[in-house]
Design a binder for these strands. Structure first.
Length: 428
RNA sequence: GUGGCUGUAGCUCAAUCGGCAGAGCGCUGGACUGUGGAUCCAGCUGUUGCGGGUUCAACCCCCGUCAGCCACCCCA
């Protein structure tokens, strides 16, 4: 009985070795930026109870977009759609033992039940980084500076990407002066979030429909056009000054229409975008001063961000900064000359491994050209050839596929000869 | 959840008005029996996503279905 060709689960991605190499590279860059600022790596469960997210992450995210199912005991379980609530839970559980401030980061998979499209899948990876226990604008700036350090390390300059910053407290005060009450704040935030995504006329109609007066709509438009609005916020003034001190002021800019979708943000909010504005936000984050308390911990302020692996990949590709990564780890292919030399070839490969060299052995007897083509196709730079002539003399031939030359050396000198070749390559 | 586009060889894609299903790349072999990337020659590969319908005849038109992509929504 033949099975119908199985299809992958909608919205998941297969990581073939080349994809895995990119993911690992991204992980490495994130780890390096995190490490430089003293952040510690942690991981949370991929499964959480549904109520952890209830009324914290945003209605839509939990009710519409979380993977939820019942376990065999009947409990409502969700595949985590984001990390911050888990982080808040973990911190809250050890609030008496941890040394504050806490600087933690993580890189792992998340799931959202959405319709897949460009830059969005149902299963994706996120880099999360959070600073908990400090509530000043300098802490916000440090978080932003980690982002900038990351961008710099992957080759994205301030002219390629911008960190756009705003502050919810500032916007709340500004809304109040327009006579927009607290009850209407969520609506107003939504309007702010929409402003840059809609045509002006459509946005105005939508705003009026949402219950704002014509005056309020005009006032809101005025706010969103005011790039100097941040000067009315002491927090943002300090934030930008701190970015200056950290030497990354050129990566950030004020944008009054950045507000972020998650409900738990309380102060500074930011998102990074490509300069051309072609893609969605590369990452988003901000200050959440009530979240730890909301999951039953004490009052603990926090600030952090999350970066998905998809958009950053698209931006890097678009800007030509995609790394060229070697997928094949082997530095040398030990060829099998014929059945008579097969055991000798296996021994040679094993000797190289003992010497710390990544060596592939060609696992069947084939014509030499085919074996060398294999090495070429995989990008293995060196090949070892040992036929009857070499073996009789206790020698092997080391072929450099890149330099297009070869030398016959004594078998016991092979590892050293290979190291010499590889060293010359890496410095060059 | 709503709307649009697309499914043809391993990959990228062609196929005129409905009239024998093709090319490039790749792969295999050879030119070259102990030496790779170039070149040349030869060769292999198909349930045209799947199911039904219309027709003398369907990759092409119609209906359904599945999958992928894109946009909305939301967000990393």
């Amino acid at each position: 009985m033949t099975m119908k060709k199985p299809t992958p689960v909608k919205g998941t991605r297969d990581y073939y070795p080349a994809d895995m190499a990119f993911r690992n590279w991204l992980y490495g860059r994130a780890r390096e930026a995190s490490r430089k600022f003293g952040y510690q790596e942690f991981e949370a469960p991929f499964l959480e109870t549904l109520d952890l997210y209830a009324a914290k992450s945003g209605e839509e995210l939990v009710k519409e977009q979380a993977f939820v199912f019942q376990d065999r005991g009947g409990d409502e379980i969700t595949l985590r759609p984001e990390l911050t609530p888990s982080l808040a839970r973990m911190v809250s559980a050890r609030i008496g033992q941890l040394t504050f401030p806490v600087r933690w980061w993580s890189f792992g998979p998340f799931w959202r039940y959405e319709r897949p499209q460009k830059g969005r899948t149902r299963e994706f990876f996120q880099w999360n980084l959070d600073l908990i226990g400090v509530d000043n604008p300098q802490a916000d700036a440090e978080i932003a500076a980690v982002v900038c350090e990351f961008f710099r390390s992957v080759g994205l300059a301030p002219q390629d990407v911008k960190l756009q910053v705003n502050n919810r407290r500032l916007m709340e005060e500004a809304l109040a002066t327009l006579g927009i009450r607290e009850e209407a704040r969520a609506t107003a935030f939504r309007l702010i979030d929409k402003k840059e995504k809609m045509e002006t006329a459509a946005w105005e109609a939508y705003a009026l429909e949402s219950g704002l007066s014509a005056d309020q709509v005009r006032g809101l438009q005025g706010l969103l056009a005011d790039l100097e609005l941040w000067k009315q916020s002491g927090e943002l003034q300090e934030f930008f000054a701190a970015m200056e001190a950290l030497g990354v002021r050129d990566y950030v800019e004020y944008n009054p229409s950045v507000i972020r979708g998650l409900d738990y943000y309380t102060g500074t909010v930011f998102e990074a975008r490509d300069a051309a504005g072609e893609f969605r936000a590369i990452l988003g984050g901000g200050r959440y001063d009530n979240l730890v308390a909301d999951v039953g911990g004490g009052k603990l302020p926090g600030v952090g961000f999350a970066m998905g692996d998809l958009i950053i990949g698209l931006v890097l590709k678009k800007s030509g900064k995609e790394p060229s990564l070697r997928v094949v780890p082997a530095d040398v292919l030990v060829t099998t000359f014929s059945a008579q030399e097969r055991d000798a070839a296996m021994r040679t490969a094993q000797e190289l491994r003992k010497a710390g060299i990544a060596a592939e052995w060609y696992p069947s007897v084939e014509r030499l050209p085919k074996q060398l083509k294999y090495a070429d196709a995989l990008g293995i730079p060196l090949a070892v050839i040992a036929g009857p002539d070499e073996i009789r003399d206790g020698k092997v031939t080391l072929k450099d596929l890149t330099a297009r030359d070869q030398a016959t050396v004594r078998a016991e000198d092979l590892a050293q000869e290979i190291r010499k070749r590889l060293a010359g390559r890496q410095t060059g």
